[in-house]
Design a protein around this nucleic acid. Structure first.
Ligand SMILES: Nc1ccn([C@H]2C[C@H](O)[C@@H](COP(=O)(O)OP(=O)(O)OP(=O)(O)O)O2)c(=O)n1
Ligand SMILES: [Mg+2]
Ligand SMILES: [Mg+2]
Length: 1000
DNA sequence: ATCCTCCCCTAC
DNA sequence: TAAGGTAGGGGAGGAT
């Protein structure tokens, strides 16, 4: 085989460990095919290119024979760069290898090989510092390599990216400059734009249809109505509008100012003149330069792309709205509706008009393909380019598809192509592929892709359908460039930027997510610490982990907290992390009818400094002084200061084994909605995965739903005292776990497993109660116009300072329009403290807000609804129909209890009359703030004696008279039983983002 | 059988 | 220097 064959595997000869590189790492370094396939990160080398490069080399003026017989391979970032070393060596009689060829490459040149790579070097692999080449050249003789050998003893500078970017701001800087980010964003924007237009279809006017009058009544083929439209070298065409003088030149759009042989910037788009030199989109400048030294570089014009893209879509929408947006410069258009309505048979004529209008408006060329399905239309576009249109009718399809390159089929990329090559040899065209059985393809590619390819190579593609309801399934944020950290703190900084971006996007799209996935790119053990390309991730392994949150969120803080927890669980060596990605899934949309002051707002408030709050802020309302609520202190789980050193995330061998499939696998059935449970919080559809705790593992789903139903009944009756009482009971149960955790943690080191179990139980219950609390709040609000439980909000240092300032001046501080009566600040409960050493909670104080309206428990006379009406003889009732005794409602006890409480209620009413000075005001909101324990101890003295009120009364009752409420007797037992259960727990639970992790 | 998690792959 | 994003389809393999 030719030494420069395009199929020389880059990895196989060079990896001594036998580890197969994953694609995410370096991408295809070798690609076949005519056209600019996209994902060419890294070197592009095909046979033709190699030939061209060879010509370049043979033109090199030989200066000496210094390196005669010596061949080098440059690994990773070097100074001087690889291109220069190559030039020097080649000019002086040596050879340059693009890949390390065992036994044929004399030296590997490197500056920053990872220790593990050095450790695993074979005897024949000699690694030399580039200085050896430079010094040899300078002195004009081949110096001994020994002083330049890179050995294990050599001290290697640790991971610091040259000109280290500020990790805190790097995310925004990066996204501002990332073209891939831009085109992804634009594609999304265009899809939304079309969806919006389609939603207003009845008022939409197809203003440009008048231009098609002359085509009315025309005749034509009636089989091809699907049109695929794509701008010709989109970015370049836009760039040329400013520089018409450059038309006809080989042009590229890139960050590089000018082409050079060591530029590693990627080419976003290249002109058709550049393509004659075999230059492709996605190629590195250095490679393009070697193909065409006269290459002209043009800068990006991000905003122009956005405007033109929108313009493009708006033009097409003047003809039809049967548009499927693919990307910023590409779409499918179904012309059958238009042609039918206007009685047009000449589809080509229509497309010609559309393209003409696009050119008139944008001064850029678009090409189009027309076919009976999307597949054919797309392949036709390729044939039509540049600046043309091409139609394939049904009758022509079979002839048309035969010579089409397999690589051009949508869905066939680098990996699939190589699988085909492996399985069937050098197969190139669809015609050849047609000889392969469907089952064979499915065995090779899997059920779906196998079938798709089988049909594609016969010209059969999907019909075009418009699923307007194509709601987004995920929102994600990736940064796989410029990530270099030496420890978790630095990693955290990058994470903050990414988190912030993700939160912003969620909020902008009015989405909240329930499942968060973290994905890390980890440098492969063999890869150099710095790849040749500045800031790039180089060869990496991918690891990911996801967590289910108790309720949907878009809060920056919650996401960050969860993300760092995941990061910790993945246990990466921080200095080997090369990329970070966050994905939110299981999304729920904020509905238009979301109520003010509810969950959605709560989440908004959580986002500190958010301006977009939708709540009506009450103004100048007289404050009511409440007693300091006796909230339990948060517990801080003490854990070992220094954990064991984190083992590295190991590179896993890629499993290339072909699957053994003899029969045609059955296609998987359509997925059901993965959520069985949903409830509505503030108009939010909140799905949550079942709390799947086994019998011994509280809280079981049944218990929770029983509790929920029971609480609802109490609220229906207006019996808030009972609600509070029951709640306090639940909290007491939870408190027992807290105590246990603390005890165990303090004394009994040998019971670590036990501790974990208890923590898990605790976590599960607290998580469940958090959700339950929201449910109750929501239900109360619906019924009574008030939340019942306080909402805890984080506040910033500035907000704290402001509250303190007001308080000191004897004013009533305001927080977000709420009166703050008892400034009590409190550090939030966080586990992260244990590993984020020296983490300060200074900016993370929590604020508790409760508010009541006059209709709330404070002012509302409790309806003495007859319990019999609700329950008697009604066995279909939500509660009583349950078979378990867990939530059985003890009617008699209830009646007794109700009567006993009548007295208290009337007393409470009296108290209210005495204390409330705002009884007539609607929606009075009251705020209390818990104080941080470390704050000035003198605070409590300064707090004025608060008036007795219903809240205090409730609190008092809660702590004095709450011998276990009759209501949930059996629940209690079930809960209590778990207290003494020592069994291992295995459960798939939903974690509240506010809670500590149960891992480890 | 079905679901879930952790990947891989593809397109622009 | 350079800015290798992002959404969705889908499969393997473990848990239930
Ligand atoms: N590797 C790539 C591929 C594309 N793009 C951007 C720049 C392109 O202009 C735009 C559209 O991609 P196309 O695949 O449509 O390519 P072009 O429009 O540049 O050329 P063609 O005439 O082949 O459509 O997306 C990019 O940044 N990086
Ligand atoms: Mg294009
Ligand atoms: Mg395109």
């Amino acid at each position: 085989m030719d030494e420069n064959s395009a199929f020389d595997d880059p990895d196989e000869p060079s990896t001594s460990t036998g580890i197969t590189r994953k694609r995410v790492s370096d991408g295809p370094e070798i690609v076949l095919g005519e056209k600019g396939e996209f994902p060419h990160f890294g070197h592009y080398m095909d046979a033709k290119v190699q030939k061209l490069m060879h010509q370049v080399h043979s033109n090199v003026t030989k200066k000496s024979d210094l390196f005669n017989g010596i061949s080098i391979f440059v690994n990773g970032y070097t100074l001087p760069p690889a291109a220069e070393l190559k030039k020097i060596v080649v000019e002086n009689g040596g050879e340059y290898h693009h890949y390390y060829k065992l036994g044929r490459t004399t030296y590997m040149i490197a500056m920053n090989l990872a220790k593990s790579k050095l450790d695993s070097l074979r005897k024949e692999e000699i690694v030399v510092h580039p200085k050896w080449i430079m010094n040899s050249l300078q002195q004009g003789l081949l110096l001994p390599i020994h002083p330049y050998l890179l050995t294990k003893q050599l001290e290697l500078t640790q991971n610091v990216l040259r000109t280290h970017a500020n990790p805190e701001t790097s995310a925004s800087r990066f996204y501002e400059r990332s073209r891939l980010h831009l085109i992804s964003t634009l594609a999304q924007e265009m899809k939304e734009y079309i969806a919006e237009l389609r939603s207003k279809m009845d008022t939409h006017e197809f203003v440009s249809r008048s231009k098609l009058c002359h085509l009315s009544g025309s005749k034509g083929d009636h089989s091809a109505f699907i049109c695929h439209l794509d701008m010709d070298c989109f970015f370049v065409s836009i760039g040329l509008r400013m520089r018409p003088d450059l038309v006809g030149k080989p042009l590229v759009i890139t960050h590089s100012r000018s082409a050079s042989d060591h530029g590693k910037a990627e080419i976003a788009s290249c002109s058709y003149e550049a393509r004659k030199f075999n230059i492709k989109n996605g190629m590195w400048i250095s490679d393009a330069y070697n193909l065409c030294p006269d290459l002209v570089c043009l800068p990006y014009q991000f905003e122009e792309y956005r405007a033109s893209s929108k313009r493009l879509y708006s033009i097409v929408s003047k003809y039809t709205l049967d548009i499927k947006a693919v990307s910023c410069d590409e779409m499918y258009v179904d012309l059958s509706g238009l042609c039918e309505e206007l009685q047009i048979g000449d589809v080509m004529g229509v497309v010609n008009e559309i393209r003409k209008e696009i050119f008139d408006e944008l001064n850029c060329n678009a090409s189009a393909g027309i076919g009976p399905n999307m597949l054919i239309a797309r392949l036709a576009t390729k044939k039509a380019k540049p600046n043309g249109q091409f139609m394939v009718t049904s009758a022509e399809v079979s002839n048309f598809i035969r010579p089409v390159a397999i690589k051009d089929l949508p869905g066939v990329g680098y990996s699939s192509l190589h699988k085909i090559k492996e399985a069937f040899g050098n197969m190139m065209t669809c015609e050849e592929l047609q000889s392969v059985f469907c089952s064979t393809l499915q065995a090779l590619f899997g059920t779906k892709l196998g079938a798709k390819i089988f049909y594609s190579c016969r010209g059969q593609g999907e019909e075009m359908e418009f699923t307007d309801t194509a709601a987004r399934k995920s929102v994600s944020c990736d940064m796989n460039f410029g990530i270099r950290a030496n420890n978790f703190e630095e990693l955290d900084k990058f994470m903050q930027g990414i988190t912030e971006e993700l939160s912003k996007r969620l909020e902008r799209t009015k989405l909240a997510g329930t499942q968060l996935t973290l994905r890390l790119l980890i440098r492969m053990p063999d890869a150099p610490l710095e790849p040749e390309k500045y800031g790039a991730h180089g060869p990496c392994d991918q690891v990911s982990k996801s967590v289910n949150l108790a309720y949907p969120t878009f809060s920056k803080e919650l996401i960050h907290q969860a993300a760092m927890r995941l990061a910790k669980q993945l246990k990466p060596v921080p200095s080997d992390v090369r990329g970070i990605g966050l994905t939110m899934t299981k999304l729920s949309k904020k509905p238009e009818n979301a109520q003010k002051g509810g969950l959605y707002n709560y989440l908004l408030i959580l986002k500190k400094g958010s301006q977009s709050q939708e709540s009506d802020k009450p103004k100048n309302e007289p404050g009511v002084t409440f007693a300091r609520p006796a909230l339990p202190k948060p517990i801080q789980l003490k854990t070992k200061k220094k954990g064991p050193k984190l083992p590295p995330v190991c590179a896993k061998q890629r499993d290339w084994r072909p699957r053994k499939v003899n029969t045609l696998p059955k296609p998987p059935p359509a997925r059901k909605c993965i959520f069985d449970d949903k409830f509505v919080l503030d108009g939010y559809e909140v799905y949550f995965g079942k709390f799947r705790f086994t019998v011994r593992n509280p809280p079981s789903e049944e218990i929770i739903s029983d509790l929920t139903e029971a609480f609802k009944i109490l609220i229906d009756r207006g019996d808030f005292r009972k609600v509070k009482l029951t709640w306090s009971y639940l909290e007491q149960v939870l408190e027992k776990y807290r105590v246990k955790i603390q005890c165990l943690d303090r004394g009994l080191d040998e019971s670590v497993g036990w501790l974990a179990d208890i923590c898990l139980i605790y976590s599960g219950w607290e998580s469940a109660l958090t959700v339950l609390k929201h449910t109750i709040n929501e239900y109360c609000k619906k019924k009574e116009g008030s939340v019942l439980f306080p909402l805890v909000l984080p506040i910033s240092k500035e907000e704290e300072t402001e509250i303190r300032r007001c308080w000191d001046k004897k004013e009533t501080p305001l927080y977000d329009g709420f009166k703050v009566n008892n400034p009590v600040l409190q550090a939030p409960f966080m586990e992260e403290k244990e590993w984020k050493d020296g983490h300060s909670f200074d900016n993370e104080l929590e604020l508790t807000i409760d508010w009541f309206t006059e209709k709330g428990p404070k002012g509302k006379p409790i309806k003495a609804q007859e319990p019999e009406i609700v329950l008697q003889g009604n066995k279909d009732d939500a509660v009583s129909k349950k078979e378990e005794p867990t939530s059985c409602f003890d009617l008699e006890d209830y009646i007794k209890e109700t009567k006993k409480e009548e007295l208290r209620k009337s007393k409470m009413k009296d108290d209210l009359k005495n204390s409330s000075c705002d009884e007539e005001k609607p929606a009075t909101k009251l705020v209390s703030i818990n104080t941080k324990l470390t704050q000035t101890p003198g605070n409590s003295k300064e707090i004025p004696e608060s008036k007795l009120d219903s809240y205090e009364e409730l609190e008092k009752l809660r702590y004095t008279s709450c011998s276990s409420p009759d209501l949930f007797e059996s629940s209690q037992e079930e809960i209590s039983s778990t207290l003494t259960t020592e069994n291992k727990l295995s459960c798939n639970r939903s974690l509240s983002p506010l809670l500590f992790s149960d891992e480890e």
